[in-house]
């Protein structure tokens, strides 16, 4: 009994340390103070600044657009690639799975730097076309989509596709109507992963982005070094909003997966 109590305290303490900075910042985002520690008045100024400053709106909108765009590309490449490699010869599959692993284990600085050298220095592509940035983020996330689709293909009953062909479906139709629904959960989680990776990235963006464009990460890094306190505290509001959204998303995911487990259990009973 005593031991269990001790471990509860330990877990709570670590969680407290992990969340204290974000929570304290969230509280202070609702005040007019410019530093943590000073007790000031309640104010929604930070939120007003966040939503009315064009520079901030551009940066957030740009990051979201980039995240969605590159994730759609990454999901298409990763999913179609996973289906293709999965049904290829064992050797082809293992070679490309190994290559797919490179961006996963590689340091983001190296990935960003090498893509920039290839596209901008060797190919002479202009960063202002946004192409290096979009390609960079697709390279970052497509391997993760691939990794989340492959297990679903392994789980799938291989005779389903054959049955569809025997029943007269064309290969494309069978893939669309039979294979795709079977691996849909892998595609969705791969896409979600791609979005978070793109939103969290600093290094690839910093080496490949146009000089006038900022993602959330590159913007925040410059703002913390800058002296504009108004922008600095508006970012506290942004941090709070993202925290709440992530928390909501986590709760929904948890509820959904609980329901799935229950449904599966129910099916098994029935």
């Amino acid at each position: 009994m005593k031991k269990r109590f001790g471990s509860q305290i330990f877990i709570s303490l670590i969680l407290l340390i992990m969340y204290a900075p974000i929570l304290i910042l969230a509280v202070y985002s609702f005040t007019d103070s410019t530093n943590i520690g000073a007790i000031r008045n309640f104010s929604l100024d930070n939120y007003v600044t966040l939503f009315t400053t064009p520079e901030l709106a551009d940066m957030i909108g740009g990051s979201l657009l980039l995240a969605l765009g590159s994730s759609v590309l990454a999901t298409i490449f990763g999913t179609v690639g996973a289906i293709g490699f999965f049904y290829s010869k064992k050797r082809t599959q293992s070679v490309f799975s190994a290559i797919n692993q490179i961006p996963v284990v590689n340091a983001d600085v190296v990935t960003g730097f090498s893509i920039c050298i290839l596209l901008v220095i060797v190919f002479g592509m202009s960063k202002d076309t946004y192409l290096p940035l979009i390609i960079g983020h697709t390279v970052l996330s497509a391997p993760f989509v691939y990794l989340s689709v492959i297990p679903k293909l392994k789980q799938m009953d291989p005779s389903l596709y054959e049955a569809a062909l025997d029943l007269g479906a064309k290969p494309g139709y069978a893939l669309w109507k039979v294979v795709l629904p079977q691996i849909a959960s892998g595609i969705v989680s791969g896409f979600a992963l791609a979005v978070t990776l793109s939103l969290d990235d600093y290094f690839i963006a910093t080496y490949t982005k146009p000089a006038t464009f900022d993602t959330i990460s590159t913007y925040v890094v410059n703002a913390t070094k800058g002296s504009q306190t108004e922008i600095k505290t508006a970012l506290w509001a942004l941090s709070t909003i993202i925290f709440v959204l992530v928390l909501l998303f986590a709760i929904i995911m948890n509820l959904l997966s609980n329901r799935e487990v229950k449904e599966e259990a129910g099916e098994r009973l029935a």
């Binding site: 969680l15 974000i22 943590i36 600093y202 995911m253």
Partner: peptide
């Protein structure tokens, strides 16, 4: 889930929060 959730929050924003606390 609670332990993992911070991974989904942009790391530059988390470090900003940490910086404010450490500065204190």
């Amino acid at each position: 889930m609670i332990f993992i959730t911070p991974m989904w929050i942009n790391f530059t924003l988390r470090i900003t929060a940490l910086k404010e606390i450490l500065t204190l």
